[in-house]
């Protein structure tokens, strides 16, 4: 399902990260980075709450608005019951739509915000997303200090909070269209190979987007997936060609951009809901403002993984949502 927008713009955005991200190649593009993973809080969960709060604070400063000027906050994260989102929202007092789309959350938030603004129901919205490496490790895998070996295909959850301010005011990046993805499951059960889980969902969403907008893949200067990692990226290219006969050129993956995969201890690259927006709102927007690239199709990919379902021998479904971004001329 593709929505076309005429009057929706991302006016500004803000990113806050942890140490692994600031040690990576994109460090100068982030608004704020911390050297440790607690950020002055007592637990990983509260640290993630702070990521959302701070990214919204920085964003409000940038656009010279107060929280009372914001109509809706659309936010999501990976933690159970969306605790990072809910606790951040409780201190902010902005009407909240809490969403869960695993690592596809960022684009899902942008699509919901864009639809509400385009229809005139609201004037503006903030779309936020966060993830925290240790909070995610604790919830989905092992205690953070446990050093059990991991496979090469494992991805490393990015630590960060990213927020974008959307309105109908013509400035910044135009949200041109958005495609809601469908859930795809090709029978992968390996929780340490999320790239393989998510690649078919990304492929289907790209295909649906191109078909419904009647576009060729070359229309976009950059096709950017969320967090497939170095192996998932190759799987997507191969799958896209053999299943849909589409040759992915000008293609990259946020999970491989945010870290220096060859030097940092991040296995196959980054993952997590914050991965796609951290890269897009900082590095990619910067390139767009400089007119190095003009049209970007961002496909945030989410593995809808649940440890109980995986332990009871079920496969892992995945979803991907796409959004078409253009620089305002």
């Amino acid at each position: 399902m593709t929505f076309k927008y005429n009057n929706v713009y991302i006016n500004d955005s803000a990113t806050v990260t942890g140490p692994y991200e600031s040690n990576g190649p994109l460090s100068k593009y982030f608004d704020k980075s911390y050297d440790d993973l607690y950020f002055g809080t007592k637990t990983w969960e509260l640290a993630e709450v702070k990521l959302i709060e701070e990214s919204i604070d920085i964003l409000l400063n940038k656009i010279s608005k107060t929280r009372f000027d914001i109509n809706v906050l659309i936010s999501g994260d990976l933690l159970n019951q969306l605790v990072a989102t809910n606790y951040a929202a409780s201190s902010l007092g902005i009407p909240l739509i809490g969403i869960y789309g695993a690592c596809s959350t960022s684009v899902l938030g942008l699509i919901i915000a864009a639809n509400m603004i385009e229809s005139g129901q609201i004037k503006n919205a903030i779309a936020s997303t966060s993830s925290h490496n240790n909070a995610a490790e604790k919830q989905f895998r092992y205690p953070t200090e446990y050093g059990g070996p991991k496979r090469k295909t494992t991805t490393f959850t990015a630590t960060g909070g990213a927020s974008a301010y959307l309105s109908s005011y013509k400035k910044g990046i135009k949200v041109e269209s958005g495609t809601l993805g469908t859930v795809v499951d090709l029978g992968i059960t390996d929780v340490y190979h999320m790239g393989a889980v998510m690649a078919p969902a990304a492929a289907k969403t790209i295909y649906d987007h191109l078909r419904e907008t009647k576009r060729e893949i070359g229309y976009y200067d950059l096709i950017l997936t969320g967090d497939l990692g170095i192996y998932g990226k190759e799987i997507l290219k191969d799958y896209m060609l053999s299943e849909y006969n589409i040759d992915l050129k000008n293609y990259d993956d946020c999970g491989t951009i945010i870290y220096d995969v060859s030097k940092q201890p991040v296995y196959a690259g980054a993952s997590g809901p914050a991965c796609a927006p951290l890269v897009t709102y900082s590095y990619i927007f910067n390139k767009m403002y400089k007119r190095e690239i003009k049209r970007v199709l961002l496909i945030a990919t989410g593995a809808l993984m649940n440890t109980t379902m995986v332990n009871t021998k079920n496969t892992i479904p995945a979803i991907a949502h796409a959004i078409s971004l253009e620089v305002v001329e």
């Binding site: 090709l186 029978g187 190979h193 393989a196 191969d238």
Partner: peptide
């Protein structure tokens, strides 16, 4: 699913 698994195996180190 089976064909996809082969494709995945091809790109898995």
């Amino acid at each position: 699913d089976k064909k996809y698994k082969n494709l995945v195996d091809k790109h898995t180190p």
